[in-house]
Amino acid sequence: MIVRIMGEGQVRLADDHLTELNKLDDELLAEMESGDEPGFRQTLAALLDAVRRLGSPLPDDSLEPSELILPAPDASLDEVRAMLSDDGLIPG
């Protein structure tokens, strides 16, 4: 799976990491719903760090279609809310 972090680039991520990422996505969704800005910031950073750690960066000149697009680390609660589907940021 190709994942884009807005403002950073793309990484190739094995599908078997989705379970770990979905746990963080569920936490992020709960924090957004409760308006927990500090928790939201911490969990968004953890989610993006996990994608960077588990994925392999693609070259900057690579133009692969992204299957998943994640917000930039400094995205606001409202910006992330606009990106959500019923499953959160990560399907499944």
Rank of each mutant, 00 (worst) to 15 (best):
R12Y: 13
F40N: 07
R53G: 11
Q42R: 14
V11Y: 15
G9K: 07
A82C: 02
A82S: 09
S34V: 03
D49F: 06
D74R: 12
P73K: 03
E27D: 15
G35K: 05
L44I: 02
R41M: 01
G92M: 09
G55S: 11
L84W: 06
L77T: 01
D26L: 14
R81P: 00
M1F: 04
L48G: 02
D60R: 14
M6L: 14
D36F: 05
S62C: 11
Q42L: 13
S56H: 09
V3E: 14
I5P: 13
E67G: 15
N22H: 12
M6R: 15
E79H: 05
L47T: 04
M1Y: 09
L54V: 01
G7L: 02
D49C: 04
V3Q: 13
E31W: 02
D60L: 09
P38D: 10
L21Y: 08
P38V: 06
R12T: 01
L21A: 11
L84M: 05
D78T: 12
M6N: 10
G55N: 11
P91H: 06
R4M: 08
S66Q: 12
A30F: 04
E67P: 01
G39C: 03
D15I: 10
L89I: 10
L54P: 10
R12P: 00
G92R: 10
V3T: 04
P73V: 12
G35L: 05
E79L: 05
I2G: 01
L44N: 05
E8R: 10
L24W: 04
L84H: 04
F40H: 02
E64S: 08
A45T: 06
D78K: 14
M1E: 09
L18W: 10
P71W: 05
P73L: 08
S34G: 02
P73C: 12
V3G: 07
E31H: 13
G9P: 11
S76M: 14
E20T: 07
L70T: 06
E31R: 12
S85P: 00
E31Y: 04
G7V: 12
M1P: 07
V3Y: 06
N22R: 15
D26Y: 02
L89D: 14
P73F: 00
V11P: 01
L58I: 05
H17I: 02
L24C: 05
G39M: 09
F40D: 00
E27V: 07
A30Q: 08
L29Y: 09
E31C: 07
I2D: 01
P73D: 14
S62F: 13
G9H: 02
L63D: 14
L58Y: 04
M6E: 14
R53H: 11
E20P: 00
I90N: 08
L84N: 06
F40P: 01
S76D: 12
L28T: 04
L24I: 10
P65L: 06
G88Q: 07
N22Q: 06
E37V: 15
R12Q: 12
E31T: 00
P65V: 03
P57D: 07
R41Q: 12
R41L: 12
V51N: 08
D61R: 11
L54E: 15
L29V: 00
G35N: 03
P57R: 13
L84V: 06
D15P: 07
R12V: 10
A14R: 13
A72S: 15
G35E: 03
E33I: 10
G35Q: 05
A75Q: 11
L21P: 04
A82V: 09
V51G: 08
M32T: 02
D78F: 05
